[in-house]
Amino acid sequence: MAGRGLTIDGSIAREGALSRVPRAFGGVVDAARTRIVEAFGDGRMHSAYLYGSIPRGTAVPGVSDLDLLLALHAEPTEADRRDATRIEHALDKSFEEIDGVGILLFSVRTLLSERERHDLGFFVACLCTPLLGDDLADQLPRYRPTPLLARETNGDLSLALPGWRRQADEASTDKHRRGLCRLVARRIVRTGFTLVMPRWEGWTSDLVESAEAFGLYYPERAEQMRAAAERGRTPSADPAVLRHLIEDLGPWLAAEYAAVHGEKALRP
Rank of each mutant, 00 (worst) to 15 (best):
A254K: 00
P141I: 10
H261W: 09
E97P: 05
E78P: 07
D169M: 10
E209C: 03
D238Q: 00
P76L: 00
E220Q: 15
E247P: 04
R144Y: 14
L131P: 01
M1N: 10
G262N: 07
R56W: 03
W200N: 05
L6F: 11
G202L: 07
W203D: 11
D65N: 12
M225A: 08
R231F: 15
K175M: 05
A171C: 01
A17N: 03
A228Y: 10
R117M: 14
H46T: 06
I246L: 02
L159T: 11
G5R: 14
R81P: 02
A48N: 02
E114T: 13
A150P: 05
K93H: 14
L111C: 08
L207K: 11
Q139C: 04
L242A: 05
L266H: 08
P145W: 10
I12P: 14
T191P: 04
A171R: 01
L180Q: 03
A265H: 11
R231Y: 15
G121Q: 08
T77M: 05
L50Y: 02
R186D: 05
S205Y: 07
D119G: 05
L131S: 03
Y143A: 10
R178V: 02
L183T: 11
V63N: 09
L66D: 06
E78R: 13
D248K: 09
P61S: 11
E88H: 09
A160C: 08
A137Q: 01
H89P: 02
R82C: 01
L120C: 00
R20P: 00
C128S: 09
R267C: 01
D42H: 01
L69H: 02
Q139D: 08
S210D: 10
A229E: 03
E38M: 12
T77C: 01
E263R: 15
C126W: 04
T34R: 14
P147Q: 08
R109N: 14
D30R: 14
P147E: 09
P141D: 06
G10V: 10
A150R: 03
S205G: 15
L72R: 07
G179D: 10
R221M: 13
L66T: 05
E220D: 15
S172C: 11
S205A: 15
P76S: 05
L18P: 04
P55L: 08
A168Q: 12
P198Q: 05
F214Y: 13
W200M: 04
L136I: 10
G133Q: 13
D138N: 06
V241Y: 06
I36H: 08
A17F: 07
V208F: 11
D135P: 06
I103G: 08
T173S: 11
K93Q: 13
G133A: 07
D248T: 14
L253V: 09
T194K: 08
I87L: 03
I36C: 13
R144H: 14
D80G: 07
D134G: 06
A227G: 12
E96F: 14
R233Y: 09
